[in-house]
Design a binder for these strands. Structure first.
Length: 544
RNA sequence: GCCCCGCUAGCUCAGUGGAUAGAGCAUCUGUCUUCUAAACAGAGGGUCGGGGGUUCGAAUCCCUCGCGGGGCACCA
């Protein structure tokens, strides 16, 4: 569906052409008006075109406003200074309310593009902590957004099951089972003991076999990780094991291709990847001098697996910001393999810090190996999945989250997630009340009866929704959704509250026609709240 | 030293180069005889880290300095 913003944009360009502007147009910066007094959308077209047309901005804006014809009478135009302000018309807003269906806002931006969203992918050598939760929620919500906008999204977790950390983990479990000290840099913690005990109980025949024990331990950790993220409503389409790449000989294939392209060089007994044109210090080791491959060798094969073997047209990876230094190398590797680097989109999310004085005696950096951290499960136990998701999604990935555990625990009903959920529950409730009061409501709503400002403001918010979806999906920025949800919830609460102040403004009144019309707003807003909350993975309760 | 992110109200954070910079929390003042007060109405609170530059116009773009966080492995 075309958004109303697109419709205005098209009409705007047409009007500008009619003024005799040829050639390339500057960005006319049509966007949401910042001040409600300026209407709903605004453009600085007059200022933008003043130079080309060699006329005063105000005059140009006047002419545009006079000439423009927004389709369906969706908006009226008014020139103020060099700006042209657009206001959505009451009639169009009223009709919009009846057009809102459960999947309102969905579009076909992606045209079925196959996009892989790979996220979390932490070494399965320990429980997830609160920082990991951020990547899980961000990746999952991006996938939800992509699915909602006409993409085929594939959620994938890349399981490092045969690297050094995986081996260390296996050795740590082995040591625990045999009463030995854990290896240098190995893993300790109750979960290591638990997995060791489980292995002893369930598979006593493998406790002396390091390889099998490692596989068992990794599988056990993957199960735990799967269970943890499932509590947040995160489900993967695929758990892709690093070892599979080697079975399919993809790293070798990638390396052969790089060798042919002159991207590999031997140095100090190891094999390095580096663009011939770049400096030495940016090189990365592919094969160590002891003949073992590094994770980078696997990653090269993984690129082929995704872009060629499995045919993803775009790959979105969500990484913690501590991996940012690896981005240029991955992009370069993709290019060297003949993959368009712009199709490899890497989203870095900043870390989650615990505030000083937080519970669990932590307060400092979390370390998996030291076995001292606040786990994601503990956080979910305390504040619930909805609150965790809402809070995490509220932040742009570029912002470090200062997570005050103390505050999160005591959040309770003060939690902002309830504001949105309560709006949904209220609307659900009012619809039930309407059915109890009126046995025979008209099938069709007379939306022209919706003329109160608080009624039209709900419709206005609904009008903005498709544009919010489009922006969030295009920019891969899910944090736009909770901000929209808050705005819509505000208009809903105002709409509802008008009836508290004055009974004649309740949704359910004596007049069946008026009740029916107001129910149409309720229904539309409820669908949209539900849709938006779904995109966030947050529940939309019907009662609270 | 080099690279990445951040610096906006007391706190936590939004803010596609446009008009008088916003929200939540916190503080203060009002509103339940109700379709749900987990709500609504209102108030106070700002040198957008500092300084230059580009532009008709800068929180936003460029340069520079400062502060905080993260990274710079033959770990991932």
């Amino acid at each position: 569906m075309l958004t109303v913003r697109d419709a205005i944009q098209t009409a705007l360009i047409e009007a500008v052409r009619d003024l005799g502007v040829d050639g390339e147009l500057p960005d006319l910066e049509l966007g949401r008006a910042k001040d409600a007094g300026h209407g709903d959308y605004a453009t600085s077209a007059g200022l933008k075109l003043a130079r080309v047309l060699r006329r005063p901005p105000g005059q140009i804006a006047q002419e545009i406003a006079a000439a423009i014809a927004v389709p369906d009478g969706a908006a009226s135009a008014e020139a103020v200074g060099g700006y042209v302000n657009f206001r959505l018309t009451d009639e169009w807003l009223q009709r919009l309310v009846s057009r809102v269906e459960p999947r309102f806002g969905a579009n076909d931006l992606g045209h079925g593009e196959k996009v892989q969203v790979e996220f979390l992918s932490v070494n399965p050598t320990g429980p997830l902590h609160i920082g990991h939760g951020r990547g899980a929620i961000l990746g999952d919500s991006i996938a939800r957004l992509l699915q909602f906008t006409g993409h085929s999204a594939h959620r994938e977790y890349y399981v490092n099951d045969q690297n050094r950390q995986a081996r260390l983990f296996g050795e740590s479990v082995y040591a625990r089972l045999h009463g030995q000290e854990p290896p240098e840099g190995g893993y300790v913690g109750d979960y290591v003991t638990e997995i060791a005990e489980t292995a002893r109980a369930q598979k006593p025949d493998i406790v002396d076999n390091l390889d099998e024990l490692r596989a068992f331990a990794i599988a056990a950790m993957v199960d735990r990780i799967r269970a943890s993220v499932a509590r947040l409503g995160v489900r993967y389409d695929e758990w892709f094991y690093e070892s599979r790449l080697w079975h399919e000989q993809l790293p070798e294939e990638a390396i052969a291709r790089l060798k042919n392209g002159g991207y590999l060089k031997e140095k100090e007994g190891a094999l390095w990847f580096g663009d011939p044109a770049e400096t030495e210090e940016e090189d990365r080791v592919v094969y160590k001098s002891n003949g073992e491959p590094t994770y980078f060798a696997s990653d090269l094969g993984y690129l082929l697996s995704r872009f060629e073997r499995r045919g993803f047209e775009r790959v979105v990876e969500v990484w913690g910001a501590d991996h940012h230094g690896y981005v240029p190398r991955m992009k370069a590797a993709a290019g060297a393999l003949g993959i368009d680097p712009t199709k490899l989109v890497i989203i870095l999310n900043q870390l989650v810090n615990l505030k000083e004085g937080a519970a669990a005696g932590s307060g400092g950096k979390m370390s998996k190996r030291a076995g001292r951290f606040v786990t994601l499960d503990e956080l979910i136990d305390r504040v619930g999945s909805d609150a965790v998701r809402y809070f995490y999604l509220l932040r742009s990935p570029d912002t470090t989250i200062e997570f005050d555990l103390e505050l999160a625990i005591t959040q309770g009903n003060e939690n902002p997630v309830y504001y949105a959920q309560y709006a949904h529950a209220r609307l659900s409730n009012v619809e039930v009340a309407a059915r109890e009061r009126h046995r025979n409501l008209p099938d069709v709503a007379k939306v022209a009866l919706l003329s109160q400002p608080w009624e039209l403001d709900v419709a206005r918010q609904l009008a903005f929704w498709p544009g919010v979806v489009e922006d969030a999906a295009r920019l891969l920025e899910p944090h736009r959704i909770p901000y929209y949800v808050h705005d819509l919830a505000t208009s809903v609460h105002r709409f509802y509250h008008a009836g508290n102040a004055e009974p004649a403004y309740r949704v359910v009144v004596d007049d069946p026609e008026l009740t029916r019309a107001r129910l149409e707003i309720s229904r539309a807003a409820r669908h949209t709240l539900k849709t938006a909350l779904d995109l966030m993975g947050v529940s939309a309760p019907e009662r609270m």
